[in-house]
Amino acid sequence: MPRLDMVDTSNNNGTMTVANWRSMKKYGVRAMVAKLSEGIFFTDQTAKTSIRNAVVSGLHVNGYHFARFTTVAGAKAEAQMAARSAFNAGLGKDAVIVLDFEATNLGWSRNSANIKAWVAEVKRMGYPKTDVYTMGSWTNSMPLNNAGRGGWIANYPSNPAGLKFYGSYMGWQWTSTHKFPGCYGGFDVSQMYSSYYYGTATKAIKPKKAIYYRYNPKMIYARTTINRYKDVAFKQKVDSFPAGTVFAIAKVIIYGKITRFQLANGYYITSNLANVNRLYYAVNGGVKQVKSVRGSHRYKDVSLHHVVDWQPAGTHFDVAKVVKYGDTSRIRLANGMFISGNKKINGFVK
């Protein structure tokens, strides 16, 4: 039988887990292509997690967009959709962004103009590696050349054993119904003839060790959605707050080998640095430069009572010193003026 070099997935397969990908690797799978988007109306919500889990499993990762366009303008709009979806799904510049072209065949001239417009726009949006996927009967209806060896072609013979179709192309998708142990449903699998789709890093990513606050930062803001709980074990959820929400911390509570933050109302939230961050710069934090987020006042005094002027959003400030002020901090500038040490007002640069 042909090799199982690459698998493409979509929401039809569900979200692919690390266990799924590792099962596939045992049978020779080296790369995956996740459906990213379709037309200008659909984004595949399974792509991001499936891609992340594939990276963790040591696979090369890529993405595809299902074409619905019939004009150059439509092709450009869908290319922007594809590139944004690729970025949001976590694909880097080494990933191949594939145009799945199998909906409407308008003949060589119009197909060529539309496909070239799509490819050019995807590259302009920051993804230099592209390819075109289509069925075998359409290969003479569109430009497939990509650095001398373009195109990923689908053709499903009843008995593929011993066959090597489309050897001059990037790859041959030889079935859409292959079964893998521990994985739901049938999968599209391909035998690849070049390393073009193997450009992304495949070293399995080890999860970072969680770091928890061991001191009370007094004020923190949420990096991610934060749940509040009645109990320190986090079994009785009360409600949730979006990223950016500010919390005043009453206590740091030891919970086994980690900690929790307790609020003044007795509820508990996480103290994991991946989820929360101290709101004010630390005196010994080593910050050297900040940037105004929405515009910042400069003050004569550390209490921030006497305004000197207003600096617009985007203004960079060189930090002379971070000064503690109660449970907060101030940033002293080289000219002796002060600005707020609140990170949501003056964001970290270096």
Results as ranks from 00 to 15, higher is better:
W118K: 03
A79V: 05
N146I: 08
A113V: 05
C183K: 09
V119K: 15
K93E: 13
A75H: 00
M170C: 06
K123L: 10
K93C: 07
F101T: 05
G167E: 08
I153N: 07
A73T: 09
Y166Q: 08
A161Y: 06
N140I: 00
E102K: 12
S194K: 11
A161E: 14
G167F: 02
N146F: 00
A113G: 05
K76L: 09
W118C: 05
Y184W: 08
A147V: 03
R84T: 14
E102Q: 14
N140F: 03
T70V: 11
A82M: 05
G63L: 04
G74Q: 03
V72G: 00
Q80Y: 04
R84N: 05
A86P: 04
I97C: 00
K76T: 08
N114D: 13
H178G: 00
M125W: 07
R68K: 08
N105V: 13
A154R: 02
W152V: 10
T139C: 14
K116S: 11
T139P: 07
K116T: 11
Y196F: 15
C183R: 12
G136Y: 14
Y193H: 08
P128F: 10
G171K: 12
M81L: 00
G107D: 11
G171S: 04
Y184L: 11
Q173N: 03
S109D: 15
K206A: 15
A77R: 14
A79P: 06
S195K: 15
K129L: 12
G148M: 11
S112I: 03
G186V: 15
A75P: 01
Y184S: 14
K203P: 08
W172I: 01
T71Y: 01
D188P: 06
S137L: 11
A113C: 02
G199A: 10
A117Y: 02
F87E: 06
T202A: 09
M135T: 09
W152Q: 03
W152C: 01
W172G: 01
G151C: 08
G126A: 09
G182P: 12
F165S: 02
A73C: 01
S137Q: 15
W108N: 04
H65G: 07
N155L: 11
T71E: 09
P143H: 00
N146Y: 02
G150S: 01
Y184T: 15
N111G: 13
L99T: 01
A79E: 10
T134G: 06
A113P: 01
Y166N: 06
Y166L: 04
F87S: 14
G136H: 10
H178D: 02
A75V: 05
G151S: 03
N111H: 13
V132K: 01
K206F: 14
